[in-house]
Design a protein around this nucleic acid. Structure first.
Length: 396
RNA sequence: GCCGAGUUGGCGGAGUAGUCAAUCGCACCAGACUGUAAAUCUGGCACCCGUUUGGGUUACCCAGGUGCAAAUCCUGGACUCGGCA
């Protein structure tokens, strides 16, 4: 059954008349992902604070988990024994796994051969760079949990992802730091391209759709080269990298989309904020994943609809502010989610002040419902030919 | 009534002559967060001035005192808490 026919199909339904936005669907053995859509991030096999039933009730189509984290624990064999991540977490729908390439970057890497070392600015509080070796063969590094030596390569990442059993999986890539100069970025891209070919070769399961990953930093010619290479190898394309600015990120999307078969599904890795989603859907991207709605929820932030929400406040507010202490209103006026039907700001404020677990759950639920609803509004607007006006209404 | 202990910033609680505007925790305020080492992290928290180094004022129950110097020592007072009657 694992080597059966390709069972994942992407189909475009409706193209926007004034932009590259389109609606479509990715049909997987576990269900349909209506696009454009947003993947809830469940790195460790759980969307933090929620269970599978919640995800269902929220109306999400797909959840993204992480190869590196799940490999370290509980291990792909345990997941396989459950019948895959989705079954393990009682999520009755499609899933995607990221390859672990990002963790090699985000956990702090100093590259061999002087290729450079990572680190987004202002981020030195997060990670002490670990001297991990990246070789052409793969990446040697240590578990962030107990220091166990680990090795990740295109072959091991794909093998792990096949066992984890998501419907959509991602090729193993090397992440360039935004600080790299052209030469360093080019060297990283060359390595990624070798790894992409090996990832493709290693992938055996026909019931999973393997995404390539584009790189090339902020450089137009490298991005174009990467897009073309990916387009030759893969039936689905993910856009990778750590972007230094929104403007450049949007350029990167343009350069990439222009050089990839429009009929292939395109995923924007790790993005984004509300404005990013509008801008990038408009440029022809079909799916996103981002930690923002879930992480930010645990920090007390909840999303609000326009006009209260706008690009300036990034459509979010902080429930822990004392001005919420006796507000007998839902989080966001026009929100139809379960949380907004049942609970007041005053109550959720209290939950956060008391650090009660329910607070994290309610804001996570609301934020994901907000994102799911936004995506649904975007799809509907594309179908109805008024994406542009929806975008204006939100962003202006 | 007698004996003993104590009174420090919103709270708890260090400090017991100079390096103290006062450790630390909580609370509070502000900020950060884009393929999750994140229910996390950073900063502020007497008042005033300065963009920074910094400067000034008022402060450790109250009132006096000693001393170059006091939250820290002495005297008196107020209040609190134990033990004995």
């Amino acid at each position: 059954m694992r080597n059966g026919m390709k069972s994942i199909i992407f189909k475009i339904n409706q193209k926007d008349t004034t932009s590259k936005a389109r609606t479509g669907e990715i049909r997987t053995p576990h269900g349909v992902v209506r696009t454009p859509n947003f993947c809830a991030v469940g790195t460790q096999g759980t969307v933090k604070a929620l269970d599978g039933q919640d995800l269902q009730n929220i109306g999400l189509d797909i959840v993204l988990a992480n190869t590196y984290h799940l490999h370290i624990r509980p291990g792909e064999d345990v997941i396989d024994a459950h019948g895959g991540v989705a079954a393990m977490m009682d999520w009755n729908g499609p899933t995607m796994t990221d390859s672990g390439g990002f963790q090699v970057f985000s956990l702090g890497v100093a590259l061999e051969q002087g290729v450079g070392k990572l680190l987004r600015e202002n981020d030195d509080t997060v990670a002490k760079p670990r001297l991990n070796k990246i070789t052409e063969d793969g990446v040697h590094f240590q578990s962030h949990i107990d220091g166990t030596p680990l090795f990740l390569s295109p072959e091991t990442s794909i093998a792990i992802q096949e066992k984890i059993g998501a419907d959509l999986i991602v090729a193993f890539d090397d992440l360039e730091s935004p600080k790299y100069d052209y030469k360093e970025t080019k060297r990283s891209l060359d390595l990624t391209e070798k790894w992409l070919i090996r990832s493709k070769k290693a992938h055996k399961r026909g019931d999973q759709l393997l995404y390539g990953v584009t790189h090339g930093g902020s450089f137009e010619d490298l991005r174009i080269e990467s897009a073309k290479t990916n387009d030759k190898i893969f039936d689905a394309i993910a856009l990778g990298g750590a972007h230094s600015s929104k403007e450049n990120m949007y350029d990167v999307v343009r350069w990439t989309v222009d050089n990839v078969d429009e009929n292939k599904p395109k995923h924007m890795l790790g993005v984004g904020e509300i404005d990013d989603i509008f801008h990038i859907v408009e440029l022809g991207i079909d799916t996103f994943d981002c930690v923002i709605p879930t992480r930010v929820a645990r920090m007390g932030w909840y999303f609000v609809y326009p006009p209260e929400g706008n690009p300036k406040n990034r459509f979010r507010k902080d429930i822990s502010k004392s001005l919420n202490s006796s507000v007998m209103e839902p989080l966001s006026k026009d929100c139809q989610c379960m949380v907004c039907q049942k609970y007041t700001k005053a109550y959720i404020h209290h939950l956060f002040k008391a650090r009660e677990l329910l607070g994290y759950r309610l804001l996570t639920y609301h934020n994901l419902a907000f994102y799911a609803d936004l995506m649904s509004k975007i799809r509907e607007s594309i179908e109805n030919g008024n994406f542009e006006s929806l975008k204006k209404m939100w962003l202006e």
